[in-house]
Amino acid sequence: MPKSLLVVLTATLLLITTSVQASLHGFASSVATIAPTAPTAERPVLLWSELAVIELPAVAPEEVWVRIDLNRRELALFQGERRVLTFPYLAFGTAGANRIRLQGSSQTPIGDFRIDRINRQSRFELFFGIDYPTPEIAHEAWQNGVLSDQDYHDYQQYRRQYGRSPAYTPLGGHIGIHGLGNRPVNFHQIRDWTEGCIAVTNTEIQMLERWLDVGTLVVIR
């Protein structure tokens, strides 16, 4: 083999080797970067430090409550400090989330809510409605000019008369936690599809039925 050709082949092999090593190093770095940091089954589930990003609710030692973490797309059911159930995936509003959610915005409201109604004949398998907009959110919306004086008056009057929030103001309503109904699970897992509600699978919503009741605290962050 001519010496010049041998030199070219040697240089080519060195270049390929260097490129492969660099690629492997980059892949390892990438894996290290995206290594999951979320809690695992082996980690304790009673650590309140896990809830650092969420204002800790004032709950009784055995009180059942729900934490919905939109960033993690996780629904967790607690009894006091004890985690009872965790659903690792949920879908929410197609337009994201907001503290003051408007009628028709397809946003999920953020805040502390209470379940105020349960529909067991829902087309979404089961529906646990929350009391959005709460009096605090309605007052904030009025102060910010989102609700007019008349809107706010109507809201307060409805609350006094029926003991629950109306859904006809500019803030909307009819928000809750529900299942999929006839929707396929694979569709649910690839996109957000609700008008502002929190959606889990039919099996998961059925698992919640024995725990949730009118008055149950629901924290959405």
Rank of each mutant, 00 (worst) to 15 (best):
D151S: 06
I115P: 05
E55G: 10
A35I: 10
Q157G: 00
I205V: 15
I54F: 12
L13K: 07
L171G: 09
I130Q: 00
W65S: 08
P170E: 07
F127A: 06
T216C: 01
R67D: 15
G163S: 01
I100P: 03
Q189C: 05
T108V: 09
T17I: 15
I220A: 01
E63T: 03
C197A: 08
G129P: 02
R67S: 14
D149I: 01
Q143S: 12
I16T: 06
H153M: 12
P36F: 06
V59G: 02
T134K: 07
D112L: 13
D151R: 04
T33Y: 13
Y168R: 08
W48A: 10
P109R: 04
P135S: 04
T134F: 06
F113C: 06
D154I: 05
R73N: 02
Q143C: 06
G145I: 06
R221C: 02
T37H: 07
T33N: 09
L56T: 12
S29Y: 13
A41L: 15
S148R: 08
T18K: 07
R99N: 06
Q161I: 07
E195Y: 12
V8C: 02
G104E: 05
S29C: 12
A91H: 09
R99Y: 11
G96C: 05
P135D: 11
L13S: 14
R114H: 14
F124A: 12
L147K: 03
C197E: 09
T201W: 06
G104H: 10
E63F: 03
P44K: 07
V218A: 00
V219H: 15
S105D: 15
R160D: 13
A141S: 04
V53N: 07
I34Q: 09
I198G: 06
I34M: 09
G93K: 10
A32K: 14
S23E: 12
Q161A: 15
I198N: 01
Q103S: 14
Y158P: 00
T169K: 03
R83M: 15
Q157Y: 08
H139M: 09
H25V: 09
D192M: 02
T194A: 05
T86G: 02
